[in-house]
Amino acid sequence: MDVAKRLYQRFSALLHELLKFGSIGLIAFVIDLGLLNLCNTVIGLGPLTSKVVATTVSTTFAYAGNRFWTFRHRDQSGLGREYFLFFLLNGIALLFGLLTIGFTTYTLGRHDSLSVNIANIVGVGLGTLFRYWSYKKWVFLEATEPIPVELPGTGIRQDR
């Protein structure tokens, strides 16, 4: 039990960050999947155009969630810089989804919704690995000064 407690203490910050990142990612995934199917099946935009629309909307949600919740303890290097980098890196991650959907649809000839959704899930999974790594490396940088436990002048303890 003592070993588990020490491991938790050592990795608690990373664990909490990963849980927050995963929560935001899950909601963004639901937005992405819902809009992909709405645009592709109901509106008829086609699988690749639908993926771009869905990713644009879900990425906007994910930026706000990650900036103001997951990585709020990290320095803010300017919302303009972060927003630009966030969308640039999500554009790169979008390529994983476009490649898997494009391969499934146009190379394998699978145009049904189930095949498009499976390809989307694979692409999102690959893109998520890239996004988590790249956000920590380039977008939401390490804090250069310790974050105070209490909010300045209020005596109110921050939730981390």
Rank of each mutant, 00 (worst) to 15 (best):
K20R: 15
K20W: 14
G22L: 03
S23K: 03
I27Y: 01
I31D: 04
L36N: 02
N37G: 08
N37S: 11
G44M: 03
G44C: 08
L48V: 14
S50R: 09
V52L: 04
V57F: 07
A64V: 15
G65S: 04
N66C: 07
W69I: 09
T70Q: 01
T70L: 01
T70D: 03
R72D: 09
H73T: 12
Q76K: 13
G78Q: 06
L79E: 10
G80K: 08
G80F: 03
G80Y: 02
R81S: 09
E82H: 05
Y83K: 11
F84S: 14
F84G: 10
F87Y: 10
L89H: 10
G91W: 00
G91A: 09
F96G: 05
G97S: 06
G97P: 06
L98F: 01
L99T: 13
T100I: 08
T104Q: 05
T105A: 13
T105P: 11
L108H: 05
L108Y: 01
G109H: 01
N117K: 09
G125E: 02
G125D: 02
L126H: 00
G127S: 07
G127W: 01
R131S: 12
R131A: 07
S134M: 09
S134N: 04
S134A: 08
Y135W: 01
K136D: 04
V139D: 02
A143T: 13
A143W: 01
E145A: 15
P146I: 13
I147L: 11
L151K: 11
T154C: 10
